[in-house]
Design a protein around this nucleic acid. Structure first.
Lengths: 378, 378
DNA sequence: GCCTCTGATTCAATCGATTGAAGTGTTGCC
DNA sequence: GGCAACACTTCAATCGATTGAATCAGAGGC
């Protein structure tokens, strides 16, 4: 069993949940040869463990000749550095935990790649978790990471994450950086793009094309990205004097399958929208295929815009208009913030939201002359 | 700097690459309050650290009343178990490393999810690495994991991985399981599906539909999956008495973009293939969109089959015929094998390859009567 | 009264690397 | 010759949890 987390405070407490290990005679080293230690090498080379330790880390304290001798020996003997031991002593694990809701989403894969590249450069290993927007799963993962004494946490917070939990983590001394989604009131840096602006760009583009019935499909409105893109959509509509309440607005959807399933609802709406702003590209892809199957040709009979500009967007038929929100920049920035915090510099100023870019392609033509939905004014 | 790995043997040696830590007065605990230890709690409760340790792990050696008292205190005080310390003592880290070439591929995401679910149940944390088919990247990752003393490695070996490296790892005592791709001569279990059979199924289906010009597009022929699917394609053709040498065969491609780019070559081939067997769904998706753009309607003018049956396959237009190779089963099986090895049971018998399933959909109709490529016999 | 047994608890060594302080030996300078 | 400075090297304590062996209290048997 695992000690249950208490009701209130940051639930980072935890106890080892495993059953007692089937005891082996000598502690550790269950199977396979005993591993070489610093001490073994010190003995073999007739120096102290201190010297070996320092030499392997290129300390200027050891004479170059000694250092080379030691390194050569380590290499030849197949020495493998033991980070558990080092971590115990230094209280640095060189591990960073990353929690997102869906690594299957190419957008996160992109963020993750950038993070990994930057952090890998500093010898940090990255642990990923797919929390699937489940707070309990997310918490379990964070608990485990805390037990492993990770050096920092990068979190795209699950819907429903309490701000006290995030702040509690930060207060306990571990560097935390939020990405993609904000958690209102959190006292940690947040790296995200400006979703309001991005949504506004794309919806304004649809309006400029002449559309007046513009549906928004998808997005968890409890998450900051869902909320903000929805807000941007509303702002753009209002700005153009279009009645927001008269627009189709379907929340909560997230995946390609969801997009597919939403088509029935979309086509039966009256007045039928002439344009759709999808929360993300996955949903847009789902819409594209299901619409075509329903005999409504996207990019001709109806305009569809996505968000994220993931890999497949440009190559679809029709090529998908989307908003590129610079996942690599988010990953790189988050990594840099992380490293700075780990180095001991508290990050106080919040990084500015990254401004996304609209990429107009074929999927968002002007409304079909004489199409439905035209009749109705604002 | 990092000690360079030697020419020959398994390059798992390594030394700490980081610069010396900017020394803080008290070792460890850079920032934030000192964390509670077993000792602290022992003192507070007037018991020994041994009792606390045993109590938290539900040992029958401690009296139930004592155990509850200790657990309650741990919870209230916010104790966080230190796995570095435990790992040092027990030589068990409760971490498993997973290396694949592309987590972006939904197929691997599926495998990974299954792995994570199964291993998470045993309190194992999963570390992933995207080696991008780069042997050096893969090796760097493995080195780091060895330093962290992971309990096991699950590897989809990068193209170019040497069998000695894999066997060297295994010999050094760490449980290793290969997935998806075989490495000839490796003395470790391999969990994979039967790619020869899968390819054969789908190509035989195309032949049964009446096709005689069946191209194969994509797959790294140096990897076992690329090699085997290519072999299955050839076998099916030979079986039907079709001249393999007369078929278009484009190796090395892997991504959607690659598929898109291959269309020019595909359409200019003479005789032009009436059917295509794509190495994976990503390539098939690329083909689908680029073909339609070129005015050749897939599922009518040309038959396209994919492989992996990933999420998007069924929902494309036309719905993609594909081979489902059971990623979740691969993940679950690999996890089980891993746990068995970790528990000390050496796995000697090789698991049987998993038999994939053909899923026929709209994208593979019979050849168009009177179409090109018909003229030419075997 | 003495001994054994059992159940609960504690002792103390251990895992392997790190690092402040202390200890060498050599060189250089006055 | 004396002494400081310097360049290396070593000593030894330490990080925090685990666990085989030892201890201890109380019950029970003869």
């Amino acid at each position: 069993m695992t000690i249950k987390t208490p009701k209130g405070p940051p639930a980072v407490q935890a106890a080892p949940g495993e059953p007692l290990v089937a005891s082996s005679r000598e502690p550790g080293r269950a199977r396979g040869a005993r591993r070489l230690t610093l001490g073994d090498m010190a003995e073999a080379l007739q120096v102290s463990t201190a010297t070996v330790s320092l030499a392997l880390r290129d300390s200027p304290l050891v004479a170059p000749a000694t250092r080379e001798r030691i390194k050569a020996h380590a290499l030849a003997a197949g020495y493998v550095y033991n980070r558990s031991a080092a971590a115990l002593r230094t209280a640095r694990s060189n591990m960073i935990g990353v929690a997102v809701h869906d690594i299957l989403n190419p957008y996160f894969a992109e963020v993750f790649r950038a993070l990994e590249d930057e952090l890998g450069r500093e010898n940090q290993v990255v642990l990923i978790c797919n929390h699937r927007d489940d707070v309990a799963r997310q918490q379990r993962f964070i608990d485990t990471l805390m037990q492993h004494r990770v050096d920092g946490l990068v979190i795209c917070a699950s819907v429903g994450t309490r701000v006290e939990d995030i702040n509690g983590l930060a207060d306990s001394g571990i560097p935390v950086t939020l990405i993609c989604r904000d958690v209102a009131g959190a006292r940690v840096p947040v790296v995200r793009s400006d979703d309001v602006a991005g949504a506004r760009m794309v919806v304004s583009h649809l309006i400029a094309q002449g559309h007046r019935q513009i549906a928004m499909i998808g997005g968890r409105r409890q998450s900051s990205s869902g909320h903000d893109r929805n807000l941007g959509w509303k702002l753009a509509l209002e700005e153009a004097g279009i009645d927001v309440a008269a627009q189709l607005d379907i929340p909560e959807l997230m995946t390609t399958a969801d997009g597919r399933d939403a088509v029935a609802q979309l086509l039966s709406a009256t007045p039928r929208p002439t344009a759709v702003f999808a929360f993300n590209d996955l949903i847009a892809h789902g819409l594209l295929s299901a619409l075509r199957r329903a005999g409504v040709e996207p990019g001709r009979d109806i305009a569809i815009a996505g968000y994220d500009d993931t890999d497949g967007a440009a190559s679809r038929t029709p090529a998908l208009t989307s908003v590129w929100n610079k996942p690599d920049e988010i990953g790189r920035t988050a990594a840099a913030l992380m490293l700075r915090q780990i180095a001991g510099a508290p990050v106080t100023e919040m990084p500015a939201p990254i401004l996304p870019e609209l990429r107009v392609r074929e999927s968002t033509p002007p409304p079909k002359p004489g199409g439905e939905g035209q009749a109705r004014g604002a």
